[in-house]
């Protein structure tokens, strides 16, 4: 049996999304955006600008106080229960701190990406179909560490752990991929390796991708489109060519310096 992965049909629409936290903090103040299928979007801004909140409204880890997010024609903001889980299983996510189960093997972490699509009893008993197991190993191969399948996750380096995170998201066969500061915990060379892996895979599978970054040079290197946020508002939306140093100073509200660059 040979399975194929066709081009994904991701498409994300933010419709006047506002988020007010219980503390009274207004994290998003009316964001409207449309992201076409297959686009690789980098969101930049200082910490506290609302990047993390924005990305989490896409899979409803944060529920907007008003407005809505539509992913692939599904209003995920108002989806609940089974419908919400089904919608989430189509959206991969990778995290700054990797969020792997450290005491589990790498392959078990990758397989956990299949849980959303599996009947509950199979998940609870860890009875993954053969095709899913093969697919998980293939995901691991695609991020370049097939030989680490049976190593415990906490025995890997940071870069390898983030690759496992990508493989887990990839195992979902997602049409959308979210990445919240995926390289903030990594050193510069590893950062570039992980970002190019992410970009390559997104291209190959036609996955719509939103990445939060705060490094200017990396945003310019990898993005199809850059969105700048400040105080919960989109203040820049353009191509990497349009994102000049002046534009970044506008987004950050201060002169840019070396700390804003990851370097090579």
């Amino acid at each position: 049996m040979t399975e194929t992965v066709g081009p994904a049909v991701g498409h994300i629409a933010f419709e006047d999304v506002e988020v007010v936290y219980k503390t009274g903090l207004k994290a998003l103040k009316g964001v409207t955006l449309s992201i076409p299928k297959g686009q690789f979007v980098v969101v930049v801004g200082l910490s506290g600008a609302g990047k993390s909140t924005l990305i989490r409204t896409v899979n409803n880890l944060v529920t907007p106080s008003s407005g809505r997010v539509v992913v692939e024609g599904v209003d995920i903001t108002h989806a609940r229960g089974q419908a919400l889980r089904a919608a989430r299983s189509d959206i991969g996510m990778i995290f700054q701190t990797f969020n792997l189960v450290k005491r589990s093997s790498v392959i078990r972490n990758v397989l956990s990406g299949r849980l959303g699509d599996l009947p509950a009893w199979r998940g609870v008993l860890s009875a993954f179909p053969k095709a899913d197991q093969a697919y998980a190993h293939d995901c691991l191969a695609r991020v370049g560490i097939p030989e680490k399948a049976y190593v415990r996750a906490d025995a890997l380096s940071g870069g390898q752990q983030q690759r496992v995170g990508i493989a887990r998201a990839l195992a979902q066969r997602p049409s959308v991929m979210l990445a919240d500061e995926p390289v903030a915990s990594l050193d510069p060379p590893t950062s570039h390796a992980v970002m190019s892996d992410l970009k390559r895979i997104a291209r190959e599978d036609g996955i719509t991708t939103i990445v939060n970054l705060h490094f200017i040079d990396m945003a310019r290197d990898y993005a199809d489109r850059i969105i700048g946020m400040r105080d919960g508002v989109v203040v820049f939306d353009g191509t990497p060519q349009e994102a000049t140093d002046a534009a970044f100073e506008e987004i950050y509200g201060r002169p840019i310096d070396d700390k804003d660059l990851r370097g090579a």
């Binding site: 299983s89 959206i91 996510m93 998940g123 995170g165």
Partner: peptide, 17 residues
């Protein structure tokens, strides 16, 4: 959080995470 994002239910999340 990761397994919530995957769309896994409560019992599956408990078993895996």
């Amino acid at each position: 959080e990761a397994l919530k994002a995957v769309g896994a239910g409560r019992n599956r999340t408990i078993v895996f995470a």
